[in-house]
């Protein structure tokens, strides 16, 4: 391990929280207050959030949770961030029935009817956030990370 080299690699720049709150408010209608009490950082094209505490001067690999990627346009929320902040969404969200939720959790694409704007959406099942989906032209593409997908169809039941 060489902290020296990681110091060069890991540049976390502090980010204004109002910019982050604006992005989430504009796409998902989440109240800006939901983002108070956190500090935000940008490293390369990723945005990170951590509880508001004094951060000692160290070489960090991660700071809190990666909440969004600005690699492409539009920006993409992470599934883990939606599981925290997504419950406050008031638009661009989708409630799935059991059969659809299963397909979504398996990481597959499916046709759905929705009045969401094209782009990333918060996917709910029975009132709980499952994660991030990409919706356009009547098709929902699951963005659930591979290691968190439900593998064997039919082996586990949704309740």
């Amino acid at each position: 391990m060489s902290p020296k080299s990681s110091r060069i690699r890991n540049v976390f720049e502090p980010l204004d929280s109002s910019w982050v709150a604006d992005q989430w408010h504009s796409r998902f209608g989440i109240s800006k207050e939901a983002f108070s009490g956190y500090k935000f950082f940008q490293k390369a094209k990723s945005i990170w959030a951590i509880s508001d505490a004094c951060l000692p001067r160290l070489s960090y690999e991660t700071i809190g949770m990666r909440i969004m990627s600005c690699k492409g346009r539009p920006w993409k929320p992470t599934t883990c961030a939606l599981q925290i902040f997504g419950r406050y969404a008031t638009k661009n969200l989708m409630h799935l029935e059991t059969a659809f939720a299963r397909i979504f959790l398996e990481g597959a694409s499916q046709a759905v009817e929705s009045d969401c704007e094209p782009g990333y959406v918060v996917v709910f099942y029975r009132g709980e956030v499952l994660g991030c989906g990409l919706y356009s032209h009547g098709k929902l593409v699951s963005q659930i990370p591979k290691e968190r997908r439900m593998a064997d169809r039919g082996s586990e039941d949704l309740s």
Binding site: M1, I50, E61, T62, G64, M65
Partner: peptide, 15 residues
């Protein structure tokens, strides 16, 4: 840490 929703954890890589 991400799956469990930890927002107060920062990771370092020192000996």
């Amino acid at each position: 840490c991400e799956r469990l929703g930890c927002l107060n954890v920062a990771i370092t890589r020192y000996d």
